[in-house]
Amino acid sequence: MRSISWVVVAGLAFAASGCSDYDVILKKQTEMDARLEQLIQGSAAANKRVAELSGEVKELQARDKAQSAELDELKNTVAPQLKNLKPSLETPSPSVTELPPAATPRIEVVNSDAAPPDSDAGPQEAYMKAFGLFSSNKYGEAIEAFEAFIRNHSSHEYAGNAQYWIGECYYTQRNYPLALEAFNKVVSNYPKGNKVPDAMLKTGYTLFNMNEPARAKAALKALVDKYPRSPAAVKAKERLGHS
């Protein structure tokens, strides 16, 4: 009887160790996904800035060309006036007591206000700031920043990503009910977003942590059926194999 008890205890300890190891692996995967997205968004921001600088250079070249043309036109206008004015100054007419002042050519300054900033510069900066808070483990502040991003830029291409990372913030804090709600919003509010498979995967993980294995398995199977070739589907199959 005593030997049987030891077997049970050993089995439970092994299972607990396995769950702990799985949680560690899952956390590392999430950190890697977050770092990868940060690198991707940073690269996109750099490419965008290069394009902006290229546009600014072209605009300056165009302005320089326009100013050169204006100067040439001004020279062509003033030169004949000066040529006609010179003989009259050298031999003034007796009936003229005073020469009228030479007309000063009028130069109009063209409004050279800078072009309005790209409308995407603000949203991308706000998204990267929120993502930086998440990467720094400031989950409460990150949630607020991502929610503000969604309120201010609900139709932006990063809105679905922001909603997904809200779910990750709650998941990391073990607030599974709010994490589940956030992941479900990714699927319902942004069905064409690139984070839908990941959100479906984390929905399954969240349900497992909420002790709802039947719903969790159904969520993961739905992911595999709908996005069979996605990296998230591979992870879902692995998790189903351990359940």
Rank of each mutant, 00 (worst) to 15 (best):
A126T: 08
M128R: 15
R106V: 15
Q124C: 05
A148D: 13
S135R: 13
S112L: 08
R151L: 14
Q163K: 07
K129A: 12
A103L: 11
V110P: 00
N111S: 13
S136E: 12
Y164G: 01
E125V: 10
E125C: 01
I107N: 00
A121Q: 12
S95T: 12
V110E: 12
F149L: 02
P117A: 11
A142M: 10
A159Q: 07
D113T: 05
V96R: 14
N152W: 00
I150C: 03
L99R: 14
E141S: 14
Y164V: 05
A114Q: 10
C169H: 05
I166F: 02
T104Y: 01
L99N: 10
S95F: 07
P123D: 11
G140Q: 15
F146K: 05
G122I: 10
A102C: 00
A102M: 13
H153C: 04
E147W: 08
L133D: 01
Q124A: 09
K129Q: 14
S135K: 06
N111Q: 07
E141N: 07
Y164L: 12
Y158N: 06
C169S: 15
E168G: 03
D118I: 01
P100I: 00
Y158Q: 07
E157S: 15
L133T: 09
P101L: 09
V96H: 09
E98S: 14
D118H: 10
A126Y: 05
Y164S: 06
A121H: 11
E141C: 08
H156A: 03
S155L: 13
Y158I: 01
I143E: 12
N137I: 03
A115Q: 14
S95E: 06
I143N: 06
R151P: 02
Y158V: 00
G122D: 03
E98T: 09
H153D: 04
A130K: 04
Y127V: 06
R106N: 02
P117G: 05
D120T: 08
I150N: 01
D120L: 14
P117K: 08
I107C: 10
E144D: 15
I107D: 05
R106W: 02
E108G: 07
V109F: 11
K138F: 11
F149Q: 08
G167S: 04
H156T: 05
I166M: 13
P105C: 04
P100F: 03
V110N: 11
S119T: 08
A148N: 10
A102F: 10
G167N: 07
Q163Y: 06
I150A: 06
P123W: 00
F149K: 00
S154H: 11
G140K: 15
A114F: 08
D120N: 15
I107V: 10
T97M: 10
N137A: 13
F146S: 03
K138E: 08
L99H: 13
I150S: 03
N137Q: 15
S155D: 04
F149V: 01
E144G: 12
N137V: 03
A162E: 05
S136G: 13
